[in-house]
Amino acid sequence: MVHRDERVIAFMDTSPVTPGHVLVAPREHANGLEDLNPHLGAHTWLVAHRVARGLRRSGLRCDGVNILLSDGSAAFQDVFHVHLHVIPRYHRDSFRIEAEWLERDSDMLESDAVAVRAGLRDLMSEGPVVST
């Protein structure tokens, strides 16, 4: 266990991709982001941020940090309880996030933006985003 409070726990991953790989998870169950209370999500991020800063100051001497969340099976989520991976990175480590980056012209980008804005309008009924 790395951290625990009344809302979140942070613990070492038993199958780390690099030394020091930490998982940060809310105690309250949520399958994915759609189910996660936004205030709890904000607190989870704050703890992950603090863990990342702690990793940078630790004796592990990492060169960088990735914070990764997989939401849904298409995003490679295989444990259906929201959690953030805080992954220390080292020059020449073997962990890779690889993709073929798309090239989109401005019309396609605007079309994508219209779709995202429509999804965000649906969320407005939940109220404004507020800090915790």
Rank of each mutant, 00 (worst) to 15 (best):
Leu40Asn: 06
Gly64Ala: 01
Asn66Arg: 11
Asp63His: 15
Leu46Arg: 10
Leu33Asp: 03
His49Trp: 12
Gly64Ile: 02
Gly32Val: 00
Leu36Pro: 06
Asp35Pro: 10
Ala48Glu: 04
Ala42Phe: 03
Ala30Val: 08
Val65Gly: 09
Asp35Thr: 04
Arg57Pro: 00
Asn66Ile: 11
Asp63Trp: 11
Glu34Arg: 15
Leu60Asp: 09
Val47Leu: 00
Leu40Trp: 06
Ala48Trp: 02
Glu28Asp: 09
His39Gln: 14
His39Asp: 14
Ser58Pro: 10
Trp45Thr: 10
Glu28Ala: 11
Gly41Pro: 09
Leu33Phe: 07
Ala52Cys: 08
Arg61Asn: 14
Pro38Phe: 09
Ala52Arg: 01
His43Val: 04
Ala30Arg: 00
Gly59Cys: 12
Leu36His: 01
Arg50Lys: 15
Arg61Asp: 13
Thr44Ile: 01
Gly41Arg: 04
Asn31Gly: 11
Asp35Ile: 11
Asn66Cys: 12
Asn37Thr: 07
His49Leu: 13
Gly54Tyr: 08
Leu40Ser: 00
Leu60Cys: 08
Gly41Phe: 12
Glu34Trp: 08
Gly41Trp: 07
Thr44Cys: 02
Val65Leu: 07
His39Trp: 07
Pro38Cys: 06
Leu40Ile: 13
Gly59Pro: 14
Leu55Trp: 05
Arg50His: 13
Arg53Asn: 10
Arg53Thr: 05
Thr44His: 00
Leu60Tyr: 10
Asp35Val: 08
Trp45Glu: 11
Arg61Ala: 15
His39Tyr: 09
Asn31Glu: 13
Ser58Trp: 07
Asn31Arg: 15
Trp45Asp: 06
Leu36Ala: 01
Glu28Ser: 08
Pro38Arg: 09
Pro38Asp: 05
Asn31Pro: 03
Ala30Cys: 01
Glu34Cys: 09
Arg57Asn: 13
Leu33Lys: 04
Gly59Glu: 15
Arg57Gly: 11
Arg50Trp: 10
Gly59Phe: 13
Gly32Pro: 01
Leu46Asp: 05
Asp35Ser: 13
Arg53Met: 09
Asn37Gly: 04
Gly54Lys: 10
Thr44Phe: 02
Pro38Thr: 07
Asn66Glu: 11
Leu40Ala: 02
Ala48Gly: 12
Gly59Gln: 14
Asn66Ala: 14
